[in-house]
Amino acid sequence: MLTPEQKQDLETQIRAFVGRPTGPPSVGRDLVNEPMIRQWCDAIGDANPVYLDPEAAARSVHGGIVAPPMMLQAWILEGWSMHRGHGEPRDEQQRLHKILTDAGYTGVLGTDTEQTFTRYLRPGDQVSAETVIADISEEKATGVGVGYFITTRTTFCDAKGIELGTMNFRVLKFIPKEAPQSAAANADAADAQPQKPTRIKPPLSHDNAWWWRAVAEGTLLPLQRCAQCQKLRHPPRPMCDDCGATQWDHIAASGRGALHSYTVIHHPRFPGYEFPILAALVDLPEGCRIVSNVVDCEPGALRIGMALQAFIHEDEDGFKLPLFRPAEPA
């Protein structure tokens, strides 16, 4: 964590970048040309004849082949050299990012882009571009961590210096909530992929870790059983409230159940869950109740008493938990 003084120093440093061009204007490596247009249309899957068919294009309002407007930025990209990464900053934007990276704001996430276009480009046009660091936000708390939104504004011009369009591009430069998984993520923050949020995992202790392990190993619904009096209990606890025994084992419940109560959760929308959540309290025939979710069911179809069947669901990150779905009619 930065001290207030360090934070102030950092903000003074980064704010000085606002208004600065990232570097001298860059000129596209190639003039606008038909082969590049064709390759772009192939990649995007755009079959518009004004981009691809000289005869059809000649008959159109354009009078000849034009380039797709969305290619505007493509004409000035550096090409393969961008893959060298950003070990040593080569322009002002990279210098700005490095200051933040060194201060712990190692994550970077493209958030949104806005473009405007003034005219269609034709083969033979030359495109140049100048990019300015337009804005740096106050520090914001976001789902991925605290950070600064940095907006750059690029202005594209033709050979005569007449404007072809603009692009505002915004990135979030942030302190990831969890440490990066690999050193590579640190070394090249620009390539860091934000982690998809996942459901909150159960905090584990001696009293409940065994249950989640059993589920992970394939026990559909573990139910704690007193080793002395055989009473089943859920949620698990360290002592039997009937006989006082602290020894226990567990059985696997059948997985059948009946809906005892429920709520359809709409708000607030925590990251890592799909909304609405059908939260359910389920009566098990073994005599216990358990909280879980019902899936594969419309919210309006939930009925107290309806028959449910448990199954083990696995999240994309490998976390397993028992959920319920409506039971097949017998």
Partner: peptide, 14 residues
């Protein structure tokens, strides 16, 4: 917190 662990994974957080 272990008590809440029976509810948090299922989105019952509030």
């Amino acid at each position: 917190l272990i008590h809440w662990s029976w509810y948090m994974p299922f989105g019952m957080l509030t």
